[in-house]
């Protein structure tokens, strides 16, 4: 019997868990502070829905009835008070939310609609066929072309551009302000090269470089083009 009785006794399970709550620090006059709350609610009505609040009463000295009145005022505004901080426990009644201690400061996420999975996109683009005249390619990362880029074609990349063939069209790397982006090609016959807004047209590219493998990069405000070897 004893053994059975022991077996049926369920131990009470307790686990620690921590939550993040908003802490309000009411200031005197309380009526003015409540108006501020109302103003916040008017801007974003659903802001406090489902978010319990802790009241930090360190800045005010409120009587038991004043505390009860404050809790009621907040409940009218659909704000649930989870507990109190920095107040004498004697001033709280049994029906009021409990006194909380040991709260630690933490950074709250600035706003609710956070981008879902803000992981950086691996936006580099590999093209297996030549880029033909009239085509325009855009990528937020690097662009690699396994072929030529025709005269009148255009490649725009936020990263670097690699062309394993002749580059006869326009190549614009570091488009969104990336001055470390580079342009590489097997054969340079480009109409225009640009990195982070600095550009050189075909006329300005050294004739000695023509038809050779080359790379272009930015040194300060100057675009450098050198043979690749």
């Amino acid at each position: 019997m004893d053994a059975i009785a022991k077996a049926t006794r369920q131990p009470v399970r307790m686990r620690g868990r921590s939550y993040v709550a908003f802490t309000f620090g009411p200031v005197v006059p309380i009526a003015g502070w409540l108006e501020e709350i109302d103003a916040t609610l008017a801007r974003s009505p659903g802001f406090f829905v489902g978010r319990p609040v802790v009241l930090d009463l360190s800045a005010v000295d409120l009587s038991q009835s004043a505390i009860a009145h404050l809790v009621a005022s907040l409940e009218q505004r659909n704000i649930r008070v989870l507990g109190f901080e920095n107040v004498d426990a004697a001033r709280l009644t049994a029906s009021m939310p409990p006194l909380l201690t040991g709260g630690r400061h933490c950074m709250l996420a600035p706003s609710e609609p956070k981008k879902p999975e803000a992981k950086p996109k691996s936006a580099s683009l590999v093209l297996h066929s030549p880029v033909r005249s009239g085509q325009s390619i855009f990528s937020e990362g690097d662009v690699t072309v396994l072929g030529s880029v025709g005269s009148g074609a255009e490649i725009v990349a936020c990263g670097s551009i690699h062309v394993y063939g002749a580059l006869r069209g326009r190549a614009m790397a570091g488009f969104s302000g990336n001055s470390t982006a580079r342009i590489f090609c097997q054969k340079i016959e480009a109409e225009l090269l640009a990195i982070d807004g600095y550009y050189q047209t075909a006329e300005e590219i050294d004739v000695a470089l023509r038809n050779r493998p080359a790379q272009a990069w930015l040194e300060g405000d100057i675009m450098k083009i050198a043979p690749l070897n």
Binding site: S133, G134, G150, S151, A153
Partner: peptide, 16 residues
């Protein structure tokens, strides 16, 4: 000639 070749390149892109 270059003009014809470039136009052909454009057409090939459209065929694709």
């Amino acid at each position: 000639e270059v003009s014809s070749v470039r136009d052909s390149d454009r057409i090939i892109g459209m065929l694709d």
